[in-house]
Amino acid sequence: MHVSDLIRTKGADVVTVSPEDDVRTLLAVLAEHHIGATVVVDADGALAGIVSERDIVRAIARRGAAILSDAVSTIMTADVKTCTPQTHLEELSRVMTDGRFRHVPVMVDDRLAGLVSIGDVVKSRITELEVERDSLSSYIRTAST
């Protein structure tokens, strides 16, 4: 299975923020959309970074509540690992596990085309296993009659 299969199922909509937005605005966006991370895009829509709840917690631990009025660019991860729609989910899962991050932007021709979470990958794998189980059960029932 490929990332494109996930995007087709879950959709390509991605909540984004600007590097100039303050952390308080970022928190409001995360809360409003019930998400744990968002992609940071510049005024031209180009990928600038990614920021997660973990980034916020670490920034608050370092600097306290003063971070709330700082720009998102001060706490975001700028060196973002990305994937393409053609990336195999097994490869993506390995990259996410090895890198210890849970969200990967999907890029097509240097443009944001979606966002995949580790939850999306796990859900897809569970669905695959259920289909395999059902197929095997059906085979066994058919073979035993």
Rank of each mutant, 00 (worst) to 15 (best):
A28Y: 00
V57H: 10
V39D: 05
A71R: 12
K81H: 12
G45H: 04
V95D: 13
R58D: 11
A66K: 09
E32C: 05
I56A: 09
H34K: 14
T84I: 08
G45S: 06
V95E: 13
S93P: 05
S117Q: 02
H103A: 08
L89V: 15
V95S: 10
V40Y: 02
V57F: 10
S117I: 00
G45K: 04
H88Y: 09
V39L: 06
S73N: 01
T77N: 14
A65M: 12
A31T: 14
L27T: 12
G64R: 02
M96T: 00
V106Q: 05
R24V: 06
D98T: 15
E53S: 07
R62N: 13
I60P: 00
T74S: 14
T97K: 14
A37P: 03
T87D: 12
E90T: 14
H33Y: 15
A48W: 00
A66R: 14
A46H: 13
V40C: 10
M96H: 03
R94Q: 13
R54M: 09
V41A: 10
I67R: 01
V121D: 09
A46F: 07
P105D: 07
K81F: 12
S93N: 11
V41P: 04
D55I: 01
H88N: 13
T82S: 13
T82V: 15
D98H: 13
V122F: 11
D44K: 11
G114H: 03
V51Y: 03
V108D: 09
M107D: 10
V116K: 00
V40S: 10
V95A: 09
T87S: 12
I50H: 01
I118R: 05
A31G: 09
F101V: 03
L92N: 09
A71V: 02
L92E: 08
D55K: 05
D79W: 01
M107F: 11
P105C: 11
A66P: 00
F101H: 01
V104I: 11
G45V: 06
H34M: 06
D44R: 10
E91P: 12
D70Y: 00
V95N: 08
L30T: 05
S69R: 15
S73P: 01
I50P: 03
V104M: 09
D98M: 09
R111E: 12
V121M: 07
L68K: 02
M96S: 03
F101T: 01
L112C: 10
V51K: 02
R100D: 12
G64W: 02
A28I: 04
T84M: 10
G36S: 10
M96D: 01
I118C: 08
T77A: 11
T74E: 12
S117C: 03
I60F: 12
